[in-house]
Computed example of a mutant assay.
Amino acid sequence: MNANAEPAVLSSRRAGPLQDKLERARRLLDEGEPTLLELAVQVGLSASHLQRRFRARYGLSPAEYLAQRKLGALKGALREGRDVSAALYEAGYGSPSRVYEDGAARLGMTPARYRAGGAGERIRWSLVDTALGTALVATTERGICAIELGGDAAALEAKLRAEFPRATLERVDAGRDDYLAPRLRAVAEALAGKRAQVPVDLIGTAFQKKVWDALMRIPRGQTRSYAEIAREIGRPQATRAVARACAANRVAIVVPCHRVVRGDGSLGGYRWGLPLKQRVLESERAA
């Protein structure tokens, strides 16, 4: 649920005072950065009760609401063309490293490149039939920046344009480009479970890149938990941020976020759908 959405009216007679307290908590988050305990004291609820009821009402925890508000302010300032450093501090990030490393920010690229919207980048892309269905493969001069899976070519193109709205995008017919053609073949081989060298250009925050690099070190046929990846990159408390970085991965299969599961072994989420995640994992284990 969007933090700015109009909250539903509660029907209980006791809902009025509680509703007022939750609304006050939301206003305090809009005005500053109180901790959960500070917020609980100010509105007269226990921290655990506030956490539970705030999430039930707004669909976000107080911390997630605050992170969303700060990110929204940062994005707005960057779209207006504000200086990156000024935008960071005005949005409430204590230092530039906070937005570069905080998985909750999820800009998908550094603030400077987000601000540019991909401006100056030339991205060539094509569609290729693979063992996993139709794939859109997009590449910069440095390597592949996106592999999207799906059956609808128009939807795949729309995703790419949404990711890089100011880049120069050029569709190339499969096999008609000396640079793109071998990369299409490599992607098709990788998606078929074959070993292939696929050069990538991973555009993301510093934290996201650490996670994605760790994913590419997971051997085929094996999995790691989000907590294990967090420990591997030296951020043991950042399990949720690792999960968000996996969700932000644009390069299907080649950056193997499908090899990351929950601590209990269940699949967790997957950008391209859990049936595909299970299918790929089973195929890798069998091989």
Rank of each mutant, 00 (worst) to 15 (best):
G16T: 10
P17V: 04
T168W: 06
K209H: 10
L132S: 10
W272Q: 08
A119T: 11
N2M: 12
L37I: 15
G103T: 00
I253L: 09
E64S: 09
G151E: 12
K209V: 09
C246L: 08
G117S: 06
R217L: 06
Q237L: 14
E33V: 11
Y100D: 11
T139L: 14
T223Q: 03
V137K: 02
Y58R: 08
G150F: 01
V187A: 02
D264M: 00
L160K: 01
T140F: 00
Q197Y: 15
V137H: 02
G265K: 02
S97T: 10
L36C: 07
L88E: 00
L71N: 07
S85H: 14
A243Q: 06
Y58E: 06
G108E: 06
R259G: 01
A162Y: 11
R166I: 08
L191R: 03
P219H: 06
G265Y: 00
K21S: 02
A135S: 02
G117T: 07
R14Y: 15
G143R: 01
V187S: 01
P34G: 05
L267Q: 00
A146T: 01
A116R: 07
R220Q: 12
A154L: 14
K209R: 08
V280R: 00
C246S: 01
R171C: 09
S95Q: 11
G32P: 08
Y179L: 04
N249G: 05
D213Q: 13
A8S: 13
D30K: 13
A25I: 05
R271F: 02
A167K: 04
P62W: 08
S46T: 15
L36S: 04
Y226T: 06
D173K: 15
A63V: 08
A287K: 15
L136W: 00
A287P: 12
R176S: 08
K159V: 08
G59V: 07
G133V: 05
A47T: 14
E157Q: 13
A190M: 05
R235I: 10
P17L: 02
R171Y: 09
P62A: 11
P219V: 05
E148D: 12
Q237W: 07
P236D: 05
N4V: 09
A227W: 07
V99F: 10
P62V: 12
R14M: 12
L39Y: 02
K159P: 07
P199A: 00
R183A: 00
G269M: 08
I233M: 14
E170A: 08
L18M: 13
R166K: 14
V242K: 04
D177P: 01
E101A: 07
L169T: 05
S95E: 15
R124Q: 10
E90V: 08
G193F: 01
F164T: 01
A119S: 12
D152K: 06
V255D: 00
A188C: 03
L71C: 14
A243L: 10
G221N: 11
C246W: 03
A3T: 14
S283W: 13
E163P: 05
S48C: 06
Y65P: 03
C246Y: 00
A286H: 11
L74T: 07
R195D: 09
P96S: 06
E121Y: 04
R52L: 12
H258R: 04
L45W: 09
L281T: 03
A8N: 12
V172E: 13
W125M: 02
H258I: 03
K209F: 08
A138K: 04
F164A: 03
L78V: 12
A192G: 05
